[in-house]
Computed example of a mutant assay.
Amino acid sequence: MTSPPEELHTHKIMSHPYYHRLLAAYVNCQKIGAPAEMAARLEEAGGCAMRGSGGMESGDPALDQFMEAYCEMLIKYEQELSKPLTEATLFLARIEHQFQALTAASACLSHSEGAAEDEQLKGELLKKYRGCLGSLKQELGKKKKGGKLPKEGRQKLLNWWTTHYIWPYPSEADKVALAESTGLEQKQINNWFINQRKRHWKPSFQHY
Rank of each mutant, 00 (worst) to 15 (best):
Gly59Arg: 06
Ser15Asp: 08
Phe205Met: 05
Pro17Glu: 12
Gln98Met: 02
Gln186Ala: 06
Phe66His: 13
Cys108Ala: 15
Arg154Gln: 15
Val176Gln: 13
Glu68Lys: 12
Met14Ser: 09
Gly141Trp: 01
Glu180Asn: 08
His11Ser: 13
Thr163Gln: 13
Ser110Asn: 11
Gly153Thr: 12
Leu8Met: 07
Met67Thr: 12
Ser112Thr: 13
Gln196Ser: 06
Ile194Arg: 14
Lys175Thr: 09
Val27Lys: 04
Ala104Glu: 15
Tyr26Leu: 08
Lys143Ala: 10
Phe193Asp: 02
Arg154Pro: 00
Lys127Tyr: 09
Asp118Tyr: 07
Ala115Thr: 14
Ala104Gln: 15
Met56Arg: 14
Thr163Met: 04
Leu102Pro: 00
Gln196Leu: 11
Phe99Thr: 12
Lys143Met: 02
Lys145Arg: 14
Tyr208Cys: 04
His20Asn: 03
Lys128Arg: 14
Phe205Cys: 15
Gln138Ala: 11
Gln120Ile: 07
Ser110His: 01
Ile95Gly: 00
Lys143Tyr: 03
Leu178Gln: 03
Glu72Met: 05
Asn28Asp: 14
Ser135Met: 09
Leu81Glu: 07
Ser106Ile: 12
Gly54Gln: 11
Lys137Asn: 14
Gln65Thr: 07
Ala105Met: 09
Ala104Phe: 06
Ala62Thr: 10
Gln138Tyr: 08
Gly55Leu: 08
Lys122Phe: 04
Phe193Gln: 03
Ser110Pro: 00
Gln100His: 09
Phe99Lys: 01
Ser53Asn: 14
Ala104Tyr: 00
Asn28Met: 05
Leu149Thr: 10
Tyr208Met: 04
Ala179Val: 00
Lys151Ala: 15
His164Asn: 15
Phe193Trp: 04
Leu158Glu: 15
Ile166Ser: 07
Ser112Lys: 12
Lys12Ser: 11
Leu133Cys: 03
Leu81Cys: 11
Ser82Ala: 15
Lys83Asn: 07
Ser181Thr: 13
Lys198Trp: 02
Tyr26Thr: 11
Tyr165His: 12
Tyr129Thr: 13
Ala173Trp: 01
Arg197Gly: 02
Gly146Tyr: 05
Ile166Asp: 09
Met67Cys: 13
Asn191Arg: 09
Gln79Ser: 12
Asp174His: 12
Tyr26Gly: 05
Ala49Tyr: 00
Lys31His: 01
Ala101Asp: 08
Lys12Glu: 10
Tyr70Val: 09
Gly147Val: 08
Phe205Leu: 01
Arg199Trp: 09
Leu178Arg: 02
Glu72Val: 02
Tyr19Ile: 03
His207Glu: 11
Lys148Arg: 08
Ala115Tyr: 03
Ala177Met: 05
Thr89Ser: 14
Gln30Ser: 10
Glu57Val: 13
Glu43Val: 02
Ala34Cys: 05
Ala24Phe: 00
Asn159Cys: 06
Ala101Ile: 01
Leu125His: 06
Thr182Pro: 08
Ser58Tyr: 01
Ser106Thr: 11
Ser15Pro: 00
Gly153His: 04
Tyr18Glu: 15
His16Ile: 04
His20Ile: 05
Cys29Val: 07
Pro150Ile: 00
Ile32Leu: 13
Ala179Met: 04
Gln186Phe: 00
Tyr169Thr: 08
Gln120Val: 11
Tyr77Phe: 08
Ile194Asp: 15
Glu44Asp: 06
Lys143Phe: 01
Tyr169Asn: 08
Pro35Val: 01
Lys143Gln: 11
Arg197Phe: 00
Lys143Thr: 13
Trp160Cys: 06
